[in-house]
Write a protein that binds this DNA or RNA. Sequence first.
RNA 1: GCCGAAGUGGCGGAACUGGCAGACGCGACGGUCUCAAACACCGUUGAGGGCAACCUCGUCCGGGUUCAAAUCCCGGCUUCGGCACCA
Length: 865
Amino acid sequence: MTAPTDRKKRPTRRKTGPKPAAPERTRIERYDPTAIEPRWQARWEELGQSRTDLADASRPRFYLLTMYPYPSGDIHIGHWYIKTPTDAVARFQRMQGKNVFLPIGFDAFGLPAENAAIARGIHPREWTMANIQNMRRQLRSMGASFDWDAEVITSDPDYYRWNQWLFLRFLEAGLAYRARSTVDWCPNDGTLAREQVEGADRHCWRCGAKVEKRDLEQWFLRVTKYADELLDFGGLDWPEPIKTMQTNWIGRSEGGEIVFTTAPDVHQPGGDELRVFTTRPDTLFGATFMVLAPEHPLVPKLTHPDRRAEVEAYVTAAGAETEIERLSTEREKTGVALGTEAINPVNGERIPIFVADYVLATYGTGAIMAVPAHDERDFAFATKFGLPIRRVVAAPGTESAPVDSAYEAHAADEVLVNSGEFSGLPANEGGRRIVQWLARDGRAKPAVTYRLRDWLISRQRYWGTPIPVIHCERCGIVPVPDEDLPVLLPDKVDYGGSGVNPLTRDESFVNVTCPRCGGPARRETDTMDTFIDSSWYWYRYLSPHYADGPFDPDMVETWTPVDQYTGGAEHAVMHLLYAREFTKMMRDVGVIAQNEPFQRLFNQGQILGEDGERMSKSHGNVQDPDELVTRYGADAIRLFLMFMGPWDQGGPWSPTGIGGVHRFLNRVWTIALDPGGTEPGDADSGKLPAGQDEAGARTALRHAAHRTLKVVTGEYTAFKFNTMVAHLIELANTLMRYRGTSVARMPEWDEAIRLLLLMLAPAAPHIAEELWSRRLAAAGAEWSSIHQERWPQVDDTAAAEETREVPVQVNGKLRDRVTVPAGISELELEQVVLARDKVQAALAGREPDRVIHAGGGRLVNVVAR
RNA sequence: GCCGAAGUGGCGGAACUGGCAGACGCGACGGUCUCAAACACCGUUGAGGGCAACCUCGUCCGGGUUCAAAUCCCGGCUUCGGCACCA
């Protein structure tokens, strides 16, 4: 770690307090953030400046929420990147007169704590709480205005008991249920929700291990009930990409459900219904075989005795496969025939039935009609197994062309062919008519299918919320009565190694008496997915110690939905979707009255390591902010993170530019404390710019300050922090040019400094406070915090231009610039322009055809051909 | 393969609704201050040509629309993110 530069060599530094009016050319005290920042942080805390009075209704409320961190141990620069602009928004909105609530907490349950516990032989709680301690300190070093009184830690029984309480309400309402099904299983994490399995290679979102399939009885939340409602983002101010991702994830498909029946043969009477879902009922006449998923319940029944051995072997193999082996579309199709046939309801044709793993048990009905002429996958399968391929949709003139690949396109002029009485109809209409016709005797119905699945919330591990149910041999599943909540995690944990849920080994936890019959019973040992915790934490912030329910309903009523949420886009189809689902479930059990949790969402980009890779300890590319704080101070880091680029973009971390904003803060320090000083290194320092008199300089200064105020105000509102910082730098550079001149003693100078500090306050709160305090002291005024000030008003007259420079083009090429009074008429401007030598030279004797005044006089283009 | 976002100097990036391309910063180069170094400050910095005034070219590539295109349209390339046989 590098020490701050040469601090010891400057013996005349004062510690605190304003300087008396310094004579010119006296060396002023250096800007030393390490001396200033902790002092103000302590002072703000003492004054409770960021504590929100939630009952205060005198000002407009503003609930600003940022995704709470996982207590991994260290805050890294990525956390700063999320939280710095969020804090700036909070401070800005407070200055706008809003009652801002900016809470913080910790997403404290989860696997890393257990891994650490196993590795170090300590309790997960110990590890978690020690990390939280350190992270609190680090978060405080940012100078962020979090309301720590509202802190929520999800592993606290005071929090998770309400997970349990909400679960019981969902259970009562039929929104939580237990079912046996094939689930995704991670060797480290146990079961996973669908959203938590990532990539083509099917790996666990958290640990990266390859996910397997298991057939288990698990707890689910019935979120598919909300599929259609979740597609409606009406009234929400969310980024389009997130809405698109959620929409795709929900995956609504319209089509028809068609009933095929099995054909009788010598071994069985037939007549079993085989339902399929299709988005292409228009291709029904082209179905030349059927495929069932290996897990389809009718597979055993429909297997011909001669085929039994082969089919069973195939089904077993498919079940044992990890999903990795079912890699992508590249993989060659496999499958086996059942040896029985089905009857196509539209034409009575007998078609063979196969079982193949390219059909998913979990989507639609787990069975398909295969139309090789019009589906790529069916085509591949048919080609491999030598099955017939029959074209039933064609553009005019292509009816008899050979089918050498699946034709899936949907052009307007396509008609049905080879489709009996429906031949000749446009494809779309034909499909509708076929469904209508079959529907008359119940052999089809219009249907909608979703990709979204119910949320699997069971986890086989210790460090999570125990699911509050009891399994009784006599009574079945019995909910834990409300008055017995919380079901506490036992203090002692016996890890028998990783992959074992310690709760299953804890006899005193497992063995209970049934609350209903009093007989012996077993407690549920699964715990909840930690995404449950993060699905309602922002409600808890509003009344973190409330004991009569998950939250104080009055507070929720007045403060939510959240006005602004900030966090990463990596949660697009996880946390951000769960939170919406959970909100709708809470609404349906009557604990809240709203439909959506977050009114406005902003996704900041991700900070990568210097190598462009994701920052992680294992990559060794993590930037430690503590070191940077010591070196440059929190304000410089905050500004630099905002200045790097657009907030939604992120990018690789590189510290090379940080010196630039540090220099900027030094200049602010200099112009605020030593306006009369001059730069020995600059011969022109202390002189007015050439061609400018004092009156002109005063106007220019005032203009610069108010112009900046106008622009910066808009930039804070629009989250354009990078240009906001650029404009503050520009203003400071302008002021620097007037330092040491007579103008630096004028009221315009004073006003400009005042505005600069106020504009800087949300972004760099410490230096703004320090300089503000010194100015107050120098003026003999009583101290008050800059963060309690109101945002200044723009003087539009001062901000307006007196003259403006107009670029002049001839035939679209820039040839000249003219400076004209701001209010000049187009006619006058045209005369000025045409009189210019350069314009005449460019015209070379031609008469202008026309003169275009663009964008309200922003530019003039003289056209001559 | 499908969906989404984006390609601008040596680098991060700026540019309102089609109107001066490169704000602001970094880096580099030159200078001032200093015994010296560091710090700080000032200046130059898209490419090419010219002594200069200036000229030409230039926003991923190729076309197009327009008085005017980084911005709009058509076609293509590349990078990043999401999805993964969803019938």
